[in-house]
Simulated assay, not measured.
Amino acid sequence: MKKFNRFLAVSLFALLLLVLGACGNNNDAADKTTDNKDNQTEQAADTKEKAETKDLILATTTSTQDTGLLDELIIPMFEEQNPNINVKTIAVGTGQALEMGTKGEADVLLVHAPASEEEIVASGDAINRQLVMHNDFIIVGPKDDPAGIKGLAISEAFAKIMSENAVFVSRGDDSGTHKKELEVWKKANLTPTDNASYLQTGQGMGATLQIANEKSGYTLTDRGTWLAQEKNLTNLQISVEGDEELKNIYHVMQVNPEKHDKVYAEGAEKFVDFMINNDTQKAIGEFGKDKYGQALFFPDAK
């Protein structure tokens, strides 16, 4: 009888262990199932977020990039506020940027050639044009000032450069700066190519300043790019500044989705609103002060 009781006790204990083990396995399986579901949910959320991220194509002038305004301030701020929008910047001359708008190859434009901007709005290729900021154009040239233009009015300075056959380095790229330069030559009744020392780079402002520095030539530049590049332009100085004609005005605008159905209209509208809101305008007005002792741009949005 004792042997039978001992056998019964051992059998019951073994059965208990088996039951407990089965329960443990079921719990582990349940936990694994829950973990798998959680992982699948997280992966689905990540996939959804990535799927919802859209590219916003910004066509703009090189000066906004050469100064660091876009890469250091505007794009980080905008993308932080709009995490599902990825800004793809195409920095070219304003003429090229506007042409991208007329072809529907960009979503939003940030440019500085008011007369040409008005044309693209009138054609219906762009809408929601808003004033953003300004700085000014200046003439920089060799420190020994071979043409003797320092302190002259802009038209007088251009005429002196022409009469002295001094080296003048033009962007020659249909940018806003190039358009302004041609406007000044025209108002002074001068043809710049009559000067054998007139050079056209076909490049952005930063590269054109470098060439002017190497060639000991004069060039027209926006002040912001000059300040950002000045430390590397050891042969140049500001020769002409402060002329009312040299104001440099920037606008932002959407490419019209009703005329170009592939544009990212929602993102473009958000970018325009962002550029003219109070926080962005304040940040633009402070940009550059810590590094250059003065702002590179002055906010203008109402």
Results as ranks from 00 to 15, higher is better:
Ile74Arg: 03
Asp144Val: 10
Leu70Gly: 02
Ile211Gly: 02
Ser63Ala: 13
Leu69Gly: 03
His134Ala: 12
Ser155Ile: 13
Ala265Arg: 01
Thr208Phe: 02
Ala126Pro: 06
Ala228Asp: 03
Ile57Thr: 13
Gln229Val: 05
Lys262Gln: 13
Leu17Lys: 02
Leu233Tyr: 00
Asn195Thr: 01
Ala265Ile: 02
Ala265Cys: 05
Thr94Arg: 02
Glu269Gln: 15
Ser239Lys: 07
Asp144Leu: 09
Ala212Tyr: 00
Ile138Cys: 04
Ile154Ala: 09
Asp261Tyr: 10
Thr67Gln: 05
Val87Ala: 05
Asn25Glu: 14
Asn213Pro: 03
Gln130Leu: 12
Ile238Trp: 08
Ser63Met: 07
Phe287Met: 05
Lys180Asn: 12
Ala268Lys: 00
Thr94Asn: 02
Gly176His: 00
Ala295Cys: 09
Ala126Ser: 15
Tyr264Asn: 04
Asp222Pro: 09
Asn135Gly: 05
Asn256Glu: 06
Trp185Arg: 06
Gln254Lys: 04
Gly204Phe: 04
Gln65Met: 13
Leu17Tyr: 05
Thr62Glu: 00
Leu8Asp: 10
Ile139Phe: 04
Leu246Glu: 00
Ala59Thr: 04
Gln96Arg: 08
Val169Ala: 01
Ser239Asp: 15
Met77Lys: 09
Ile75Phe: 04
Asp136Trp: 11
Val87Ser: 06
Thr61His: 12
Lys32Arg: 15
Lys289Glu: 13
Thr201Lys: 01
Gly206Val: 06
Val111Asn: 08
Ala212Asn: 06
His260Phe: 05
Ala45Glu: 14
Asn128Ala: 07
Asn277Tyr: 07
Val167Lys: 00
Leu17Arg: 06
Gln65Lys: 08
Phe168Pro: 05
Ala14Cys: 12
Asp261Gln: 14
Glu230Asn: 12
Ala166Asn: 02
Met162Cys: 06
His134Glu: 07
Glu241Asp: 08
Asp71Pro: 06
Tyr264Gln: 03
Glu72Pro: 07
Tyr198Phe: 15
Gln254Val: 08
Leu296Gln: 01
Leu56His: 01
Pro83Val: 06
Ala91Gln: 02
Ser239Phe: 04
Ser216Cys: 02
Ala106Ser: 08
Pro142Cys: 03
Thr193His: 14
Asn26Gln: 15
Ala126Gly: 13
Gln210Asn: 14
Pro192His: 10
Gly21Gln: 09
Gly204Lys: 05
Gly148His: 03
Gly68Asp: 01
Gly206Ser: 12
Ala159Arg: 14
Glu117Trp: 11
His134Cys: 11
Lys2Asn: 15
Ile238Asn: 08
Asp28Ser: 10
Glu164Asp: 15
Gln96Asp: 14
Gly24Cys: 13
Gly176Gln: 00
Pro257Trp: 08
Ile75Glu: 02
Val263Asn: 00
His112Gln: 14
Pro146Trp: 04
Gln65Ser: 14
Leu209Arg: 02
Ile120Phe: 08
Lys2Gln: 15
Asp136Ala: 11
Val169Ile: 04
Gly21Ala: 11
Asn277Ile: 06
Lys88His: 11
Val10Lys: 12
His112Cys: 13
Thr60Tyr: 03
Glu105Ser: 08
Asn213Ile: 02
Arg129Met: 15
Ser155Gly: 12
Leu18Asp: 15
Ala22Glu: 14
Phe271Leu: 06
Met205Trp: 04
Gln203Thr: 12
Leu190Ala: 03
Asp125Pro: 11
